[in-house]
C-alpha cells in the first residue's frame, strides 16, 4: 500500500446515523455526542468502507497529509 492515508471527518456534515460505525470491519469508529468520532485509528486498514457508505460524505480517507 502506498503512503498511509488518514481518516478525515467533517462533523458539520455528520447526521449521526451510525452506518460507518456498524460497517467498519475493524471497529475503528464510534459515535460521540451523536457525531462520528475516531476511536482507534491505528486499526484502520484503509478499506474506505466508511467513505463509500456514509450518506453524508462526512468521513473519508484523505490524500497525503498536509
Amino acid at each position: 500500500m502506498s503512503a498511509s492515508q488518514k481518516l478525515h471527518i467533517n462533523k458539520d456534515w455528520c447526521k449521526g446515523c451510525g452506518i460507518c460505525v456498524e460497517f467498519c470491519p475493524k471497529d475503528v469508529l464510534q459515535l460521540k455526542d451523536g457525531k462520528i468520532d475516531i476511536k482507534a485509528e491505528d486499526k484502520c486498514i484503509q478499506c474506505r468502507q466508511c467513505e463509500i457508505l456514509c450518506p453524508d460524505f462526512a468521513i473519508f480517507l484523505g490524500g497525503d497529509e498536509e
Binding site: H8, N10, D12, W13, K15, G16, C17, G18, I19, E51, P55, D56, F57, A58, F60, L61, G62, G63
Partner: peptide, 22 residues
C-alpha cells in the same frame, strides 16, 4: 477539507444535503 470525489463532483456550498439521517 473534502474528499476528491466530493471536490470533483459536488457543489460543496450546497452540502450537507437535506436527506434524513441514514
Amino acid at each position: 477539507k473534502v474528499s476528491n470525489v466530493v471536490k470533483d463532483n459536488f457543489r460543496e456550498d450546497k452540502l450537507p444535503h437535506i436527506w434524513c439521517p441514514g
